[in-house]
Design a protein around this nucleic acid. Structure first.
Lengths: 104, 104
DNA sequence: ACTATAGATCGATGATTGTCAATCTATAAT
DNA sequence: ATTATAGATTGACAATCATCGATCTATAGT
């Protein structure tokens, strides 16, 4: 039998530092109210450009850009540049993976 | 029909600031490698006292106490004092609620 | 009473983080 | 070419946080 990379869950077994570090990284991206709302806005429609996020989030353009970067680095959203705009969409698989990592 | 308090998920609909704040609070408790390992240790056995966490986590007693408090304040673990020891156990419902809040 | 132990709390410190103004880059429109 | 716009980057600042030594509280054992 070949070894399959086993993504571990918190309730499964004691986590080692590597697993805990990776999980903490994604969870940290989620652990901010502005980013959670941002994520929910992006999930609501199928694509959202950065410029449409400033008003509902009541944050400046650099702050919005900062938060999209954090979510994208965590793999939770995917950005595509088209013309002057960057369009963001959710990566549902990534969110599902986080859910799984939280046991269940 | 009576209104049932609807705990919202990120992928459901745009979150308001209140919902996002609550979710961020619990997620922040999870977004730390030491606390994630702590949680996995507690989940592994059914009850763990604080003193048994210092060695595997390689952290001082005050640091361990700090982290147990953060997890307890977030409702993820429940502590019970018996004699000189505080025994910690997982609250599985709370963790399930977080999973649900992450869409699903 | 005295000693030892579990753990909470306080205070300090270094690191990380959310925020914005200013600037820079790139694309589109005239 | 010039102008306007989307958004990334930089730098600065205040706030939050993880960590630990020292101290305090409470319980158990002798």
């Amino acid at each position: 039998m070949s070894k399959v990379p086993q993504s571990s869950s918190v309730t499964d077994a004691p986590l080692d530092e590597g697993q805990a570090g990776e999980m903490a990284h994604v969870l940290a991206a989620l652990a901010d109210p502005v980013r959670l709302r941002m994520l929910s806005f992006i999930a609501a429609r199928h694509e959202v450009c950065s410029c449409d996020l400033e008003a509902p989030l009541e944050r400046s353009q650099p702050t919005v850009s900062h938060h999209t970067k954090v979510l994208a680095d965590a793999g939770l959203i995917i950005g595509e540049k088209r013309g002057r705009w960057t369009w963001w969409r959710l990566d549902p698989d990534r969110l599902a993976a986080v859910r799984r990592a939280l046991g269940g």
